[in-house]
């Protein structure tokens, strides 16, 4: 006989099982994202304080940032978020093959974003904008580099989740890891337009 839960008289009189309004995955990701927003808020504030204080921006003899290429790269990253949303739709339909394919597409677009960023960074370094050139370079590489590290971490996460999905991991209904990964990926993607606006366009 299974043990009764809740101290009722019997199964038909037991209280309904307690269901929290927010499941553990979403709660954990909410806390993580709040801390990440504060982290990036501090970095963006530091960048903008220097930006507002400077009489000339960019500082003399420093290269201008590549706005056009980065704008296209922003669209690539937004496309990866769309692919991730499509992957979750495939998960809800129970289509495992489409899930793996769309996770791969999201990871691929994220990789393209990182590669283009790395290429642009290499060009900027050649033009003289380095981490130690001045406060402009320091804050730029710290802020954009922090985001790139986050994208890289999320990319590894998506790759692991895609591998697990290819082995049929999430078809049994236990989708917590995949949902957490999707939330984090959407956050990392949504953060980038704000950084692009603050660093490249303002």
């Amino acid at each position: 006989m299974p043990p009764h839960r809740g101290g009722g008289d019997g199964p038909d009189r037991d209280p309904a099982p307690h269901r929290p309004p927010l499941d553990n995955v979403r709660l954990a990701m909410l806390f993580l994202i709040c801390s990440e927003v504060m982290f990036f808020g501090g970095l963006v504030s530091a960048f903008l304080v220097l930006r507002v204080t400077a009489a000339v921006w960019p500082p003399p003899l420093q290269p201008r940032l590549p706005v056009g290429v980065t704008a296209v790269n922003t669209l690539v990253l937004l496309g990866s978020s769309v692919a991730m949303a499509a992957a979750l739709q495939a998960l809800r339909r129970g289509d495992a093959r489409a899930l793996v394919r769309r996770l791969g597409l999201a990871a691929g677009l994220g990789s393209v974003f990182l590669l283009v960023q790395g290429y642009e960074w290499a060009r900027l370094v050649r033009f003289g904008l380095t981490l130690s050139s001045d406060a402009y370079g320091t804050t730029f590489y710290t802020l954009i580099g922090a985001h790139a590290v986050h994208v890289l971490g999320a990319l590894v996460w998506v790759a692991v989740v895609a591998l697990l999905a290819a082995r049929g991991r999430f078809t049994d209904g236990r989708t917590g890891a995949l949902r957490a990964c999707a939330i984090y990926w959407h956050f990392v993607v949504a953060l980038w337009p704000a950084l692009f606006l603050a660093v490249y366009l303002v």
Partner: peptide, 17 residues
């Protein structure tokens, strides 16, 4: 001149969160 939107944004950010 630095005590403008960056500082205010950082102050307001925890409350918004």
């Amino acid at each position: 001149r630095t005590y403008t939107w960056p500082y205010l944004g950082l102050i307001v950010l925890p409350f918004l969160l």
